[in-house]
Amino acid sequence: MARDERGSATIWLVTAAFAMSMLVGLAVDLGGQVHAQQRAHDLAAQAARAGAEEVLAAPAVEGRYARIDSAAAVRAARTYLARSGVTGTVRVRGSRINVRATDTYHPRFLGIVGINRVQVLGSAEAELVRTLGGETR
């Protein structure tokens, strides 16, 4: 008596194709999340640089010292983040400005299992450095 095995390969093929599709989807979404995180870090670094450029003018022009104008630096960094479409926090301490950017990645494939948003963070710090004649002060 011969057994009819028609269709058994089809079940295996469908299962394997589904598993491969899920693996490709995970790879795509993981790559997208890493890219979004790198973008958040880059935006935080650019916002920190924008803030660190806000220097108290009078003492710097007179050659006495260079210090970050805290209020202007926070405004400049927040403006940069807002124009880039992300949110974040800005903190100034002495000659350093710390920026933390928060962005959202929207997965392409993970939505199938209910993951529609992934929050990514990036942070950076900039320091105001003054040099005279090759000497850092």
Rank of each mutant, 00 (worst) to 15 (best):
S70M: 11
A60V: 04
E127A: 12
A66L: 14
E62N: 14
L121N: 07
E54V: 09
A36E: 04
G51L: 01
R96L: 00
A17F: 10
A72G: 02
D69F: 05
I115E: 06
L43C: 07
Y105P: 10
G133L: 01
T131K: 11
R78F: 12
D42A: 10
L121A: 05
P59R: 09
G88V: 06
A126Q: 01
T87S: 14
A40P: 06
W12Y: 08
V90W: 05
V34F: 09
A47R: 11
R49Q: 15
E127F: 01
L121I: 04
F18A: 15
A71M: 15
I112G: 01
V14A: 14
L26C: 05
V92M: 04
H35L: 12
A126Y: 12
V90I: 05
G122F: 11
A47K: 05
Q46E: 13
A40Y: 00
R108Y: 09
V24G: 10
V92Q: 05
D29K: 07
G31T: 14
Q46A: 10
A76Y: 05
L110Y: 07
L128I: 02
E62D: 14
Q46I: 01
V120D: 02
L43W: 03
A44L: 08
Q119W: 03
R39P: 00
Q37K: 10
L26S: 11
A126F: 06
L26P: 05
S70Y: 00
V74R: 14
S21Q: 08
T89P: 00
M20W: 02
Y80C: 10
V92H: 02
D69G: 08
V90E: 00
R78G: 04
L13P: 03
R49L: 15
R93D: 15
G133S: 05
R130M: 12
H35W: 01
V120T: 03
L23I: 14
A126M: 04
A19F: 10
L81A: 02
D29G: 14
L23W: 09
R130G: 03
A48C: 13
G114F: 12
A47N: 07
R91T: 06
T104Y: 04
S84L: 09
V28F: 11
Y65K: 15
L30I: 08
R117I: 13
V61N: 07
T87A: 15
G94K: 02
H41L: 12
G32W: 01
A101W: 00
L128N: 03
I97M: 15
T89A: 06
A27F: 01
S8T: 13
V55F: 02
G32T: 00
Q37H: 05
V129T: 15
S95T: 10
R130Q: 09
Q37D: 03
R78I: 00
L13E: 09
R100W: 03
G111P: 01
G133D: 08
R83W: 04
A73N: 06
E54D: 12
S8F: 12
I11N: 14
A60G: 07
D42G: 15
A36R: 00
F18I: 13
G85K: 04
I11P: 03
